[in-house]
Design a protein around this nucleic acid. Structure first.
Lengths: 252, 252
DNA sequence: CCTGAAATCAACAAAAATCAACAAAAACAT
DNA sequence: ATGTTTTTGTTGATTTTTGTTGATTTCAGG
């Protein structure tokens, strides 16, 4: 192990990338020395090397959040667009977390004079930029998982603002137990939104009706008769008892 | 994998889109080289390409206020990159509103384990997606102008969290009066951030030293000796009295 | 549908980076 | 000190990348 090893690793990771020559000058040694010292580092996979330069192999981020956004992208976009048939200019709406809601937010940029309250920083950021909207971000500390907050203050704000629609989602639709999510705080947030809205819109793409790897177990609050269910494929027979009292909207 | 790959991905994702020629000039290589280097990136689907330009296929964020971001975007990117020399993994940082800060947030996605507190929903959303970060959104009601909050609660949160750096900006640098902004609430927020941080980083691109159409008139709080000034061109003589006690970092 | 401008592609020569081998320098143990 | 081992710098052959040129394609407007 060379005496330059630590320095090199540090510099490369710090800068993201650096040419062999720059590094040689920085450490005042020859380029050949750099190459020699770097070889075992590369072999051990601690840094990566390309022709002409060394690059940090620290993954340049692909937020887990975004990768989920791309799953069933088309279905989610279709659902988001059909949401525009329900939500009109000037409506007030509470929006929960999740990739479905993120797409919904994108679609809702077409609407004006919305009153929006959400615990998702992404949704808040997206819709706050539309002139005429009144957007409230509920909560302070954001979890990196999805950029959402479930602070006490988040609930206080949700409960302070009454809206026309609550836009909710779920991780899985179970034939017996209904709409499920992974965490209790999500149920609590959904409950708060549902209780402070006139109507609820549940948005789930068809993949949510299929078995999942990671099985959620917590039940979303009961929907009221006349609430909406937005999805992208017709409801299969074995799920219809869950949706019989709801207005089901199937997007293209 | 070419040595330009990281930079290209970064710039493209930061700006959303850029022409091949602009990119060639930015990296001072020929357009042909850009095309060559970009081909595998496109094949792997990491960025998309259209005739004449490269476009990010990241989250379809195209905030209207990004239009302002397009002014002096290369300067702002350069400043954002040089910010990475100051901010290290694990640092705590308060970030204000504005297009400069938006670029800074994009750049800071390279860092891990940051503690971030900001009143900008865009900054919060951007950095909350990075695993390991601890992001707090200060404030509730967002103004559409820039997706930022200046609620009383925003100040309470800023004042509750002490950080290593406050990243501030300004709308105009006046030869006599120093760093100016348009609204009192921005001054108040800057003051709160400055008072709850160890060091302040003021980031202003060179255009801020030139006369503006819409003249701001409110003075940002005084910087402390040893605070940083980040900009992209050397400070002209007539401004040097403002920066003599500061650590001036000129990007590029 | 045509036309001119801009962008792209293919190919080749020039430039830069890499590698292997050897000699000089430094570090180490005896 | 002395010989041995390790590290370092230099050289020249080899490989990779880059810029340039000119032909081809794409795009926008008439």
């Amino acid at each position: 192990m060379s005496k330059y090893e630590i320095q090199i690793r540090e510099i490369v990771n710090m800068q993201g990338s650096i040419t062999v020559l720059e590094l040689a000058r920085a450490l005042s040694v020859s380029d050949q020395t750099i190459r020699r010292v770097v070889r075992p580092l590369v072999e051990r996979g601690e840094i990566a090397k390309v022709h002409g330069a060394l690059v940090s192999n620290r993954s340049p981020i692909d937020p887990p959040f975004m990768s989920r956004m791309s799953q069933n992208k088309l279905a989610k976009i279709a659902i988001a667009r059909s949401l525009l048939d329900l939500i009109k200019d000037g409506d007030r709406i509470a929006i929960d977390t999740g990739s479905t809601s993120a797409f919904a937010a994108q679609a809702l940029r077409e609407r004006r004079y919305l009153t929006v309250v959400t615990n998702s920083a992404f949704v808040a950021s997206t819709l706050s930029m539309i002139p005429g909207n009144n957007v409230s971000m509920a909560g302070t500390q954001l979890r990196h998982h999805d950029g959402a907050s479930f602070d006490r203050s988040a609930f206080e704000i949700i409960e302070r603002i009454h809206v026309d629609y609550a836009l909710l989602s779920a991780s899985l639709v179970d034939e017996r137990k209904g709409f499920l999510v992974h965490e209790q705080c999500e149920v609590d947030m959904a409950t708060a939104m549902l209780e402070n809205s006139s109507k609820t819109i549940m948005a789930v793409d068809h993949s949510k009706f299929l078995p999942q790897n990671r099985k959620p177990s917590l039940k979303q609050p009961e929907l009221k008769p006349g609430d909406y269910l937005l999805t992208d494929k017709p409801i299969l027979r074995q799920f219809q008892h869950l949706t019989s009292s709801l207005d089901v909207v199937v997007a293209e």
